[in-house]
Amino acid sequence: MNELKKSFQDGAFIPYIVAGDPDYKKSLEIAKKIIDAGADALEIGIPFTDPAADGPTIQKAYARSLNNGFKVKQIYQYIKEIRKYSDIPIILLTYYNIVYNQGIENFYQKTEKIGVNGVIIADMPPEESKQVTKKIKDKKINQIFLVAPTTTEKRIKTISEKGSGFIYVVSRLGVTGKRKNFQETTKKLIKKVKSNTDLPVAVGFGITKPSHVKKARKAGADGVIVGSAIVDKIEKNKKNQQITQYIKKMKQKI
């Protein structure tokens, strides 16, 4: 259970990739390279046809994966192969319909068994989480919830009680995607969340540059999640080496 929490002790750099993007084999290679480059945990998206929380970069990655034949059921094998390679904490991110369709019990049983440390369901706020939290009560898996700039302090407390592992802070209003500046409001949000929870706090959505990582850490974040900036490199078919270099540069600022 605390493997995930532990990864935040000296700051966690958490890259995000989509399983099966651009195809199964290549995305497995990319995952391994990212681990080698020094990621502290790995967040993996299970593609969904209708990702309403995601911006164009991640949408396209989901589509690439599905168009190249990725099946949801392959996620278990995919994780197993990563597990053979490394014991890095793994967090899955997907949408409610994917989990519901697999059968909530079945999904969490299988993912726990293969060593998944946490699950994020992008369109499941705490008020819709009862069925899930009931099923994972006795499991070692962490259910991670999001906090947004619009989330009230009262809700942050609820989210902190219902979730475990860490709190995912959405740095700005909008969908996933790259951006230029790290805003003042994000710093305030990190501070607000930190003062209302004992869980580690990771910030994501739009973290692109090493300077963003530094500022997020300075504001008190225990970790940063970087998705679109990496997925963008995969889309542009950049060499794995470039992804590795990027991750090393970002990781330095943790």
Binding site: A52, A53, Y96, A122, D123, M124, P125, E127, E128, F145, L146, V147, A148, P149, T150, T151, T152, R155, V170, L173, G174
Partner: peptide, 12 residues
Amino acid sequence: GGKFVPEPIISA
């Protein structure tokens, strides 16, 4: 029914 939306939309 329900409110299966990303957290940022909840307040709205």
